[in-house]
Each structure stands twice: as C-alpha cells, then as structure tokens.
Simulated assay, not measured.
Amino acid sequence: MLEALLIFALQIIYVPVLTLRTILLVKNQTKSAASAGLIEGIIYIISLGIVFKDLSNWLNIGAYVLGFSAGLLLGGYIERKLAFGYVTYNVSLLERSDKLVETLREAGFGVTVFVGEGINSNRVRLEVVAKRSREKEFLKIINEIAPKAFLVSFEIRSFQGGYMTTRMKKKAKKYKEAGS
C-alpha cells in the first residue's frame, strides 16, 4: 500500500513536470526544458521501476494510472496559472472602433489595424499581441467595448522587434496602476 501511495505521489509530480517541459520545448526554451526533463527522467525511472518490480500488483498499476490522470489535471492547472508566452488575437469588427483601439493601446497591448473587404461590406481587423497572463484582461476590454467582435487566437512561438518592447511593459504597468 505504501508503494502505491509513493507511485501516485510521484505521478502527481511527474506529469506536471512533463507538461511544463513540453511547453518550454515548444516555446523554444530548450535549456529550461532540459532541466525539467532531468527531473522528469528521474521520477519516471523510480515510479516505473516500482511498478515493473511486480506486474501482478494491480494496486501499484492502478496508482500509476490514477496518478498520471491526476497529474494531467494538475499540470493543466499549473500551465494556465503560469501562462507562459504570448498570444495573438485577430479581432474582426463590422466597423472601426477608435475607442477599442485606444483602450487596448492605453492598456499596453500591441494593436495593428487592417481594413479588409468582406462579402457584403468592408471589415476592420485588429491584430493584437498580448502576454498570455493578460489574456483575461484583454477579453474583458473586448467584451465591454465590442461584445459582437469575432475573435481568433493563436500562440506565438517567437517574435522580434515591433511594439513588444519595454514600452509595452511600461504601458501595461501604468494601465494597471490607474486601476482599469
């Protein structure tokens, strides 16, 4: 029984580390990913070693499987809280909203405005870059000013230059201090 609890605990640690390692690797942070992989490998060998020692022990196998599942839930939760990286939103509007553009820029989001041709009329598209940790704040602004906007998002693997500099960080800090 003690072995099963150890296996379960190791899986609860192992799977979130696996999740974070994968995310770090995708985000091109290979040194951090390698460090997480080291921890992951040690835990993996220990827990599987205990399971393989006696494959007729269904309690240990069950603890491994349940711990893996619980670890996935925990890993997903941790990843959402850490919110590594950046996200780009394409915001499609039926008409230009200077108020929305100004509010987003004042909040420190990088916004580029495009005018495009729709099937029945022109459309305005905003391309907005945000830290994933500020995604809720961004969505709140959109929902308050342009609740009917059509949004598409995708994560950014890397970027260079542009508005994503210290100026954006300063504006974000200033906006938060203003209490908006």
Rank of each mutant, 00 (worst) to 15 (best):
Y77P: 02
I45L: 13
Y89N: 05
R134K: 13
I78M: 03
D54N: 15
V111L: 07
N28S: 13
T88E: 06
Y64L: 15
S153G: 06
R134C: 00
K140G: 04
K81Q: 10
L139R: 15
E155Y: 09
T112N: 10
S153C: 06
S47M: 15
F68L: 14
A107D: 13
W58F: 15
G110E: 08
V15R: 02
K27N: 13
I13E: 00
L104A: 02
L24I: 02
T103P: 01
L6I: 09
N143E: 14
Q29L: 12
E135Q: 15
K169G: 12
L2M: 01
G62R: 04
E137G: 08
F8C: 08
M168A: 15
S32I: 06
R167P: 00
A34N: 14
E106K: 11
A70S: 13
L5N: 00
A36H: 07
Y14W: 06
I78F: 09
E117L: 10
G108C: 12
P147Q: 05
I12M: 13
G161I: 09
G41T: 15
A33I: 07
E144C: 05
M1Y: 03
G116L: 06
G76T: 10
K140Y: 04
R167K: 15
F109S: 04
V87M: 08
V101Y: 03
V115M: 08
E79M: 02
V87S: 08
V65W: 13
I46W: 06
G67A: 11
L2P: 00
E127M: 15
Y163R: 12
G37M: 11
A4E: 03
E102T: 10
L73Y: 14
R123E: 13
L18H: 05
T88C: 04
I42E: 11
R167F: 15
G75Y: 06
L151M: 08
S35E: 11
K170G: 09
L2N: 01
N57T: 09
A70D: 00
L72V: 12
E79Y: 03
Y175V: 05
F114I: 07
V101T: 11
F159C: 02
S180H: 13
V17T: 07
I45N: 05
F150C: 04
I46G: 08
E127R: 12
A149S: 11
A146F: 02
K170T: 14
R132H: 06
P16R: 07
G118P: 04
I61G: 14
T19L: 06
A9K: 00
L48K: 01
T30I: 11
